[in-house]
Design a protein around this nucleic acid. Structure first.
Lengths: 343, 343
DNA sequence: TTGTAGGCGTTATCAC
DNA sequence: GTGATAACGCCTACAA
């Protein structure tokens, strides 16, 4: 049975060489130090015996664990699974694995997770949880732990990040609506302590001030979280105002879904009475009724590039911090239409 | 700076005690062996210095890593994220963490992932990927690695499993339809190499033979995968047959969505022409058009219980293998209605 | 090219 | 109750 864990010494004994020789053979970097015939023989025996290096022991010795932490704010938000898959695929290709943790949108548990990850001597960290002012990010920087932010970023530090071009995203949404003829546009924003929440709102305001439509702060709300419930709530706040509007830009698809609910409760039809745009183009929004016009972000690439940049930094201390900004795309579906002339 | 990792020796030096004493203090199990005052002092100093035990070193010495592997067939299938969250929550509460891997529905990569996990000396494994005959499960059993299957199971081994009561699920779907008056019911099944695929079909057939409706193998197909595309394809195969039917039982929500597409392409309306039931009640199926009648399974509990049973087995070699079968619930929505009298 | 020896940080075991 | 010692499995100067 392979029940019994076999180690480098066992292999050495069978191959009649010293354990260090076996170590050298099994290590791509040092393999060239050993003669071809011995190397082949050792390799064959190791395979036969089903030897597998203990990453604990080798990690202890070398200080590298080939393990990366990944913290996600909410795995049940369909934006993240594809990002996670991208991360895993890219890491796996290089022999790294991911410890995944869900912070449940709580900064406190993010911190706790971070501490627990540190104790496991991870080689690096990918954070999808960044807040504008984020102690975990600061800690990584202070401790020189390689870290890459994905989707969201922070203000303070020079940290590698792979984010969506949110300016472009909001521009696409707004110009789509203005081209349809909308002039009074409401905004359903996200939490202002995240860059995605804040920056999408900023861009929206800027476009308003630039005259692309008539900006009215009364119909621009910030939601407490990127959830359907928060979107529902936020939309109700907008509806309470007098300000007429013919369209809503939601800064996230879940908010848009909450918006759908609030509109329906008021007897407003989408897109006949109000057009709605989402953001992220998460899975299944094409099957809502009406199918949601949204801003498609490159979920997969977000993950893949984050992982690859992290590996670069792990391998090279001095690798410069980078910012990758991926361009999104407007996907027009049934939730947007020209404003009805009657309104 | 805490940049410099501090270890048990550093703490010992500062506290003027032997490293083993520090180890004893920091270890809940052995803390009682040391006098209260020394324990307190050491603890305080350790906290001050920001000491964090190296889980690598301690794992190497003790043979326990407090790490569990989790293999998921497809994280982008919305059934799994809540299961994963349940797993993580339960593991985290006990100081364990999860290495998550997505096998991409491929048995080959499942095997590769398994090997890579083994090398990381995980304490146990949770598999959501089980096939009826699964070499990875066999390997776990052979090597005495604690393993828990979730959602799907295997035939051959006596392995702890946390699964949905699929018999009940199909019964709920079928009796809902027969109560509505349906007599000719089609079946859109999953891959026959998974227990979920096979057993749901078996139950469906049994109910047919028992006379609950008229069973017709021509309108019962097995899909190659639990995906929309496979469901679409499968439904087309059903539609090609002469056999008239007024309802479809899909053995998974993604298949049901594919079914929606195929029906729409044929100009058949749901539920007016054909009623459809899904299975899993994954997130957002309540927002499809029409909202999908589905079998709600306890996603979260599936994960939580799997994690807890795994912890039991990790802690006690001799813990008996258990089977937990969670009862699902029928959620009636807009995709089912009485058959139209015209058909 | 291969062997030797020491240590990564922790803890089990023995001795005091 | 505390200290000393060895070992978990691996890697890497250094020596031969």
């Amino acid at each position: 049975m392979s029940k019994q864990k076999i180690n480098i010494k066992d292999v050495a004994a069978r191959a009649k060489v010293h354990p260090s020789t076996v170590s050298r053979v099994l290590n791509p970097t040092t393999r060239s130090m050993v003669s071809m015939d011995v190397a082949d023989r050792v390799q064959k025996i190791a395979d036969q015996m089903g030897y597998a290096r203990s990453s604990l022991a080798s990690g202890l010795r070398t200080g590298k664990s080939f393990t990366v932490g990944v913290i996600i704010p909410d795995l049940s938000n369909p934006v993240f699974p594809p990002v996670v898959r991208g991360i895993e695929r890219a890491l796996g290709a290089e022999g790294y694995i991911a410890i995944l943790a869900d912070s449940d949108n709580s900064q406190r548990s993010e911190r706790a997770i971070f501490d627990s990850l540190k104790a496991r001597s991870i080689d690096g960290l990918i954070l999808a949880t960044a807040h504008i002012d984020d102690p975990v990010v600061s800690a990584c920087v202070a401790e020189d732990l390689p870290v890459v932010l994905v989707n969201r970023t922070v203000d303070a530090h020079d940290v590698t990040e792979v984010i969506n071009n949110d300016d472009l995203g909001i521009e696409l949404a707004v110009s789509h609506l203005t081209e349809l003829g909308h002039r009074r546009i409401a905004f359903l924003g996200g939490p202002m302590d995240t860059t995605t929440g804040r920056d999408r709102r900023r861009t929206f305001e800027r476009l308003g001030r630039e005259g692309q439509f008539s900006f009215d702060p009364d119909i621009c709300v910030n939601c407490a979280a990127f959830t359907e419930a928060a979107g529902h709530d936020g939309m109700n706040r907008i509806l309470r105002h007098e300000g007429a509007f013919t369209a809503v830009v939601a800064s996230n698809d879940l908010l848009a879904i909450g918006c759908y609910d609030a509109l329906a409760e008021c007897g407003l039809a989408c897109p006949d009475d109000v057009s709605v745009t989402g953001f992220n183009d998460m899975r299944f929004v094409d099957r809502l009724s009406p199918p949601l016009t949204s801003i498609h972000i490159q979920h997969d690439q977000l993950g893949v590039q984050a992982a690859n940049l992290l590996l670069e930094e792990i391998r090279d201390d001095k690798a410069p911090r980078k910012t990758v900004r991926l361009d999104p795309e407007l996907i027009v579906r049934g939730s947007t239409a020209a404003p009805s002339t009657s309104s």
